[in-house]
Amino acid sequence: MTETMATNGTTTGSRGSRVLGAATLLGLATLLLFAFGLTEADIRLHPTTGEEIGQFDAVRLLYLHVPLAVFTYVAFVLCAFASAGYLIRRTPWFDTMAHAAAEVGTVFCGLVLVTGSIWGRPVWNTWWEWGDVRLMTTLVLFLMFTGYLALRRATVDPRAAARRGAVVALVAVLDLPLVNRSVEWWENRTLHQKSTLGELKIQDLTLFTLMLGFLVFGLVLAWLLLHRFRVGWLEREDAEHGIAADIAERRAAIDEGDVDAAVGEGT
């Protein structure tokens, strides 16, 4: 970590990350304004019966759902590359990055499932569609990375945690192509649209809001990743510093001839 880290030990913010954070929050507010206010609901007229069809207001959730899904992929792919990097290079940078990416990716993946489920209730008329391959593969992805985080939390030795985590992440990421390609590979086994964009009335505002969504959630990912990485890095430094300090303390005790204190007995 070369850039300015926390100076007083109570924050992971730096000037750069504060600017990024402000931009992210502003972007999120703008996105919500566009997605839930300025854009129109998806209402079309059936060509023959003239009935009102479409996704109505539910379409607004897609401005969040689709970018979240895309950046879930980005986070998990990043995690996989960092994991592979760790197994090759064995440096803490890769491991801290893999852990941070997996954690943020899991949060994103959970939000994808939640927003998708809420969207599916009015549009597909169900919270959960068992026949949908993409839904199932995404849930499995979420569960595998939940397991990854549980494994990391349970492993005390940081090097063992890094190595085992890397293996789990590399296995779990094999599910990603299945999630992404499922819409094409099992066309009749999914309710997911190949591309919702093609079906909607692509007005300038709709397209703009979706693109804004991609930009904003890219910023959210970068911002969370930056802070999570710094927390991980500080934790590691703290653990290392703690051991070094303990050793120094005991050495000092021995120098003073206080063997009882050095071996941790006597008091």
Binding site: L143, M144, G147, A150, A172
Partner: peptide, 20 residues
Amino acid sequence: ALASGLGVRETLLPILLLPV
């Protein structure tokens, strides 16, 4: 092997293994 040596092996193995 991934879960071996951990105090929580019994509870960790199912969540790791079953999704895969």
